[in-house]
Measured scan of single mutants.
Amino acid sequence: MSIQHFRVALIPFFAAFCLPVFAHPETLVKVKDAEDQLGARVGYIELDLNSGKILESFRPEERFPMMSTFKVLLCGAVLSRVDAGQEQLGRRIHYSQNDLVEYSPVTEKHLTDGMTVRELCSAAITMSDNTAANLLLTTIGGPKELTAFLHNMGDHVTRLDRWEPELNEAIPNDERDTTMPAAMATTLRKLLTGELLTLASRQQLIDWMEADKVAGPLLRSALPAGWFIADKSGAGERGSRGIIAALGPDGKPSRIVVIYTTGSQATMDERNRQIAEIGASLIKHW
């Protein structure tokens, strides 16, 4: 067993022997301040990774656009098919120029040779490549099948209805392509620590998230040296922004954090800054 596999296998073990965790309302004060600064709703939840206990939450059962955070769930569904012998990570998928959609920095470079399922998941999570996500959605049967996968996990809230990039439209009061912070946090925890996926697939999923290259201005910008984070960000229309993450000190994750916002007129930089400040408060009061 590799060191990384050992780390993920012992996530519940280490967490069980940690000192009790206590909620700190100071972080919620910052979440509410972010709402004021952005002029928009902000949803927040913080779960203990081992027990699933909610440590703090704000608007945990209000719907927010998922945006690209759905790509972690998508690759979880792909990995479940791999575990069941219905898919192979090494299978190569070929596609054409007509398949390319807006923001496809990886797939646009491989029109000639195609990409493997493993490479597509890596591109979808680490670079948020939209064509990679659409190609992977095709392998599982489309958005409705991802929703069905989530329902089978016990998540009857999260739903995907459309493809990239239309799913980022974020129309107010439109339930399409949305989740709730509580539902997303619980589902992410199941994917990373539950028995739904094999140990190898859980490790692969967290490795992809740990290698995320496009979430630097968010929670990662607030992390002290030595902290662990595996995350996936999302951005959408109407001032929408979000991030889902597993993080913790001492090089291992111990909490799940989900943050979503929508309806702001603020710039992307300002949305990023507010999420980073929430992260800084979380870490300060850990």
Rank of each mutant, 00 (worst) to 15 (best):
Y103S: 05
G216W: 08
H110K: 12
V257N: 01
G216Q: 13
L47T: 09
T262P: 01
F22Q: 12
K284V: 10
R91A: 07
A148L: 14
L89Q: 05
I259R: 00
F70G: 07
R63N: 06
E169D: 13
L73P: 09
I275R: 00
K284E: 15
E277L: 11
S80L: 11
S264C: 07
L79D: 01
L79M: 11
M180I: 12
T107R: 01
D113P: 07
G114E: 04
L49G: 05
C121L: 05
P20V: 03
I243P: 00
E237D: 13
G234P: 00
R271W: 03
F17D: 03
G39A: 14
A9M: 14
S96C: 10
L55V: 11
E108C: 07
L197W: 03
T112N: 13
V21C: 15
S221F: 09
Y95T: 03
G251D: 11
G76D: 01
L146F: 11
I259F: 07
P165T: 10
G141M: 06
F228M: 10
N98T: 15
A246F: 12
K30F: 07
A40K: 03
R238A: 09
T112D: 15
L89S: 06
K144W: 09
M268F: 11
Y260T: 04
K252F: 10
M66D: 00
A183D: 07
M67C: 14
Q203G: 13
Q86T: 13
S233Q: 01
D207A: 15
H94A: 11
Q97H: 14
E277K: 10
S122R: 12
A182Q: 11
D269H: 13
N152L: 11
D231M: 04
Y260C: 04
F64T: 01
I259V: 13
E169C: 11
T139F: 06
V101W: 06
T69Y: 03
P143K: 03
E46T: 13
F17H: 09
D155S: 02
S233I: 00
A15E: 04
K32A: 14
K144A: 15
M184T: 03
M184S: 03
E270P: 03
V82D: 05
D207H: 09
N50S: 13
P165F: 05
K190P: 03
L10N: 06
T112K: 15
M268T: 08
A266K: 13
V101Y: 08
V157N: 14
P25A: 06
V214A: 08
E56V: 08
I171A: 15
R189I: 07
R162Y: 03
V214K: 08
I278S: 00
R241Y: 02
L135S: 04
E87H: 04
E108Y: 08
L188C: 09
L79T: 02
N272F: 02
N130W: 00
L74H: 01
T262D: 07
P217K: 14
K252T: 11
L191S: 04
R81T: 07
A183M: 10
R118N: 15
I243V: 11
R241P: 00
F13Y: 11
D174V: 04
R241H: 04
A276F: 12
A276S: 14
P25T: 11
P217H: 10
G194E: 12
S122V: 12
D113T: 14
T267K: 12
L282T: 09
P65E: 02
R273L: 12
L49A: 09
D48S: 08
C121N: 02
G279Q: 02
L146H: 02
R7C: 06
L196C: 14
R41D: 07
R202Q: 15
M1T: 02
D177H: 01
D48R: 04
L10H: 06
A246I: 13
R92F: 10
N130D: 05
N130C: 05
I45C: 13
A183Q: 12
R41E: 07
V21F: 06
T187F: 06
W227Y: 07
S104W: 01
H24V: 15
L28I: 03
I278R: 00
Q265N: 09
G39W: 08
A34F: 09
G194W: 08
W163I: 12
C75T: 10
T139N: 10
P224W: 03
K71P: 00
A16S: 15
T107M: 05
N272K: 02
K213E: 09
L146S: 01
I244D: 00
Y95M: 07
G279I: 04
M209C: 06
V72G: 03
L10Q: 06
T261I: 12
R220W: 02
L111E: 07
D83A: 05
I125F: 02
N168L: 05
A9L: 07
G52A: 07
D177N: 04
T179K: 00
K284Y: 14
T131V: 05
A16I: 10
K32V: 10
F14Y: 09
K213H: 12
G263L: 06
F149A: 08
K30W: 05
M66V: 14
I229A: 05
I11M: 11
Y260E: 00
S68I: 00
G194K: 09
M1L: 07
G263P: 04
A276K: 12
E26K: 12
L135T: 06
T262G: 05
Q88Y: 13
P224H: 06
E166D: 14
S264D: 04
R118G: 15
A200V: 11
S57H: 12
H24Q: 11
L205T: 03
G242Y: 00
E210L: 08
M1D: 01
A16V: 15
L89H: 05
A9C: 11
P12S: 12
R92G: 06
I125K: 00
Q97A: 13
L160C: 11
M209F: 03
A266E: 12
H94K: 14
D250Y: 12
L218E: 02
P172Y: 11
F70Q: 05
K30S: 10
K53R: 13
A23R: 05
M115A: 06
L197V: 06
V101L: 08
V21L: 07
F14G: 07
T27A: 06
I243C: 08
K30H: 07
H5C: 09
F22R: 10
I11Q: 05
G239D: 02
H110V: 05
G236P: 00
E35S: 05
K190S: 14
L223N: 03
G43F: 01
